[in-house]
């Protein structure tokens, strides 16, 4: 229990220990703790931000989907309209074509009928003359009866 130089020794030792702790122990540890705290805070903030971003992109996706759906519907409507148009135009074209063909056919028929009529007319005149001559049993002067025959042919 003697108080002696140990007192001074302990005071100096203590002071040296404090100095060493203050210089070499405390700052690095506090630095590491501080850095870690910052890192954790940053990480948490980043996670929160990512969550927010995810929410945002989810909303964006929904919006894009909605837009795409509207667009698709629009396109489909347009396509339908276009198809109807095409069908309509095809129909009208076909009608015109059919009409044209019919008209052509009619004309041809008309022509043929006309031609046949002409032929028939000629033949009928000849037949009529032959028949008449046979009936009359005498030669008819064709030239003399020309006007009569022509009149007859025209009546046919």
């Amino acid at each position: 229990m003697n108080i002696n130089m140990t007192l001074l020794g302990q005071t100096i030792t203590f002071a040296l220990f404090i100095w060493f702790t203050m210089k070499f122990v405390w700052p690095p540890i506090m630095n590491a703790l501080h850095t870690r705290r910052t890192q954790i805070a940053d990480g948490l903030a980043a996670a929160e931000k990512a969550q927010r971003d995810e929410e945002l992109s989810r909303q964006k996706i929904a919006e894009i989907l909605r837009e795409a759906k509207t667009q698709a519907q629009e396109i489909m409507g347009q396509a339908e309209k276009r198809a109807a148009e095409i069908i309509d135009s095809a129909k009208s074209q076909a009608k015109t074509e059919a009409e044209r063909i019919v008209t052509a056919a009619r004309a041809e028929i008309e022509q043929n009928v006309q031609r046949a009529r002409e032929q028939l007319r000629g033949q009928v005149a000849t037949l009529a003359v032959a028949g008449a001559s046979r009936v009359l049993k005498k030669e008819i002067n064709a030239a003399a009866n020309e006007d009569l025959l022509k009149d007859l042919v025209a009546q046919l």
Binding site: N2, N4, M5, T6, G9, Q10, T13, F17, F20, T21, F24, V25, W26, P27, P28, I29, N31, A32, T35, R36, T38, Q39
Partner: peptide, 30 residues
């Protein structure tokens, strides 16, 4: 006079403390 045992143990323990903590402080990372 000086108490050799007191000085020996207090300094030894203090040095153990400082060495351990210094080692941790030197390799302290975040």
């Amino acid at each position: 006079a000086i108490h050799v045992d007191t000085m020996f143990w207090s300094i030894s323990l203090g040095v153990i403390f400082l060495v351990l903590f210094r080692k941790a402080a030197k390799h302290a990372t975040a």
